[in-house]
């Protein structure tokens, strides 16, 4: 009759220990954790879903968010993308490619003096809008530009 209670207690202790371990691991500065990888946002199949996963409901276009991409990319497998945010208190920048199977490419959080800008190289499956989303003071700002791709980057 008490077995359920035992089991519950046991598993509670076990998960407590686990949580403690995770906390201890998170305190170590060199630890990279894939566990907090935002699955909902990264595995969304459309931009709206990815934005929702990021917690970005309402967002406004901003001229202070610069997105530098080539107009035409000869090779969709390597498309250089630069994002620079001049919005005060920008804490994170995410990059999305609208027509990719999974639009969200990357998201970066900046702390301890890192300037809110990033350059990366992305894959584009086809001609698509590239969208940058910056978070500043809890608000979301976007910028977007189209990149024409002559050869896709997700080839089969």
């Amino acid at each position: 009759m008490n077995t359920t209670r035992r089991t519950v207690l046991k598993s509670a202790t076990a998960s407590g220990v686990l949580a403690g371990l995770i906390a201890a691991g998170a305190l170590r500065p060199t630890q990279v954790l894939a566990a907090d990888w935002n699955k909902a946002a990264f595995e969304a199949h459309d931009v709206a879903g990815a934005l929702k996963g990021l917690g970005a409901g309402a967002s406004a276009d901003s001229k202070d968010l610069m997105l530098r991409v080539p107009d035409i990319a000869e090779n969709g497998a390597v498309v250089p993308v630069d994002v620079v945010s001049n919005i005060p208190n920008t804490s994170s920048i995410s990059i999305l490619v609208e027509k990719n199977p999974f639009p969200l490419s990357a998201t970066f959080e900046f702390t301890n003096g890192a300037l809110p800008e990033v350059s990366a190289r992305l894959k584009l499956s086809q001609t698509s809008m590239v969208k940058a989303v910056a978070k500043a003071d809890g608000k979301f700002y976007t910028a977007q530009k189209e990149v024409k791709v002559t050869v896709g980057g997700c080839g089969g």
Binding site: V78, S105, A120
Partner: peptide
């Protein structure tokens, strides 16, 4: 940073 599959 968190990265998805569409990074080159």
């Amino acid at each position: 940073g968190h990265v998805g599959t569409s990074v080159s």
